[in-house]
């Protein structure tokens, strides 16, 4: 090998090493129509390794369709998907992917242990019997391993579905409404499981209607509406917006202008709500409030109450969906 070739190879290796690691899941420009209905329209997002991404949106927003496209269960009309660096829908791309479908159902004539054994075999991974038992124990089904799935309640079947999704040591886990049939204790268990997956560097894509659940565990959120990405970003980015609830008297036009300069003003009578501008970081909110109150007092306004409030994910979601405002924070 010549010196020039060795140098070129070395440079190429360094270039590759310097590249950021590929995400666990990448999709771009996904489109899907069912007849005249567009279910998914140009959806693109990523899920990084060790990251929990929440998929939110109203009924019929296209969340489950997107998930099924990612897993090769639905053929997209356009768009590309990479799972763990491999092109989907090639079956090998799903080798290290765990999936709990929204419509979970497992062979009723098999026992819970046999269902796990079947999925381990289908995944082509060697998982010991002890490890399989641990998966069942992690979802609270350790003592039901030898029972037939046909006798399981819906909640137990969903717990089994979680064990199925996790049993083959996945690097990416896709959970479609994983707590829809679970009691509050089961939901807390799922939260703990998600956090332990993140700690192990496993990527998780979570579709859930329970916004509180998403808010507690997700690093990033993708909001879908009418098949499109209405907004996406980290939780601080999406929830960074604060609002001020004020009770004021003697509000002059100059004072109103001062309020409007701080953000969008709504309210009537003596009650005002100021939605602070997006670029106001949470850390500076205290100063901003103090300045605003000082200015209002200087303008002759009588200030009775000031309450800074952080907008919840639910309010933000409703705001985005009602206004149709993108607000992509990526």
């Amino acid at each position: 090998m010549s010196v020039a070739t060795a140098d070129a190879l070395g440079a190429a290796e360094r270039l590759l090493a310097d590249l950021p690691p590929s995400p666990a899941m990448w999709c771009s420009g996904l489109r899907k129509r069912y007849g005249r209905q567009t279910a998914v329209d140009g959806v693109s997002f990523t899920v990084g390794h060790g990251e929990i991404v929440g998929l939110l949106g109203p009924n019929g927003a296209g969340k489950t369709s997107v998930i099924k496209i990612l897993l090769g269960l639905v053929r997209p009309d356009a768009g590309e998907v990479l799972l763990l660096g491999r092109t989907a829908p090639h079956p090998e791309s799903r080798a290290r992917v765990g999936y709990l479908p929204e419509l979970f159902r497992y062979q009723p004539w098999l026992t819970a242990a046999e269902v796990l054994a079947l999925h381990v075999r289908l995944a082509g991974v060697a998982v010991s019997a002890d490890e399989r038992r641990e998966s069942l124990a992690a979802v609270g089904l350790a003592d039901r391993a030898r029972d037939r799935v046909g006798g399981f309640s819906k909640g137990m079947q969903q717990r089994l579905g979680l064990a199925v999704a996790l049993v083959a040591r996945p690097e990416l886990v896709v959970l479609d409404e994983p707590t829809s049939a679970l009691d509050p204790l089961g939901r807390a268990d799922v939260r703990d499981l998600l956090l332990s997956l993140r700690a192990r560097g496993v990527a998780v894509l979570l579709n859930s209607h329970l916004i509180g659940e998403v808010e507690r565990v997700c690093d990033r959120v993708v909001i879908l509406d009418k098949g499109r990405v209405a907004a996406s970003g980290t939780l601080p980015e999406l929830l960074g917006r604060w609002e001020l609830r004020l009770r004021l008297e003697d509000v002059t036009p100059a004072a109103q202008a001062r309020l409007a300069a701080a953000g969008r003003v709504t309210g009537s009578g003596s009650s005002f709500t100021v939605s602070l501008n997006d670029d106001e970081a949470a850390a500076t909110t205290t100063d901003l409030v103090a300045d605003l109150v000082a200015d209002l007092v200087a303008l002759g306004v009588r200030v009775h109450a000031v309450e800074p409030v952080r907008i919840s994910l639910e309010e933000r979601l409703l705001d985005i969906l009602r206004s149709g405002d993108g607000g992509d924070s990526r």
Binding site: K68, L71, G72, L73, P91, E92, S93, R94, A95, V97, Y99, L100, P101, L103, F104, R105, Y106, Q107, H119, L122, A123, G124, G161, V164
Partner: peptide, 14 residues
């Protein structure tokens, strides 16, 4: 229809 196929076909099988 029942959803059993979803979990099976999401595995690396043709």
């Amino acid at each position: 229809e029942s959803g059993t196929a979803l979990a099976i076909l999401a595995r690396p099988v043709r």
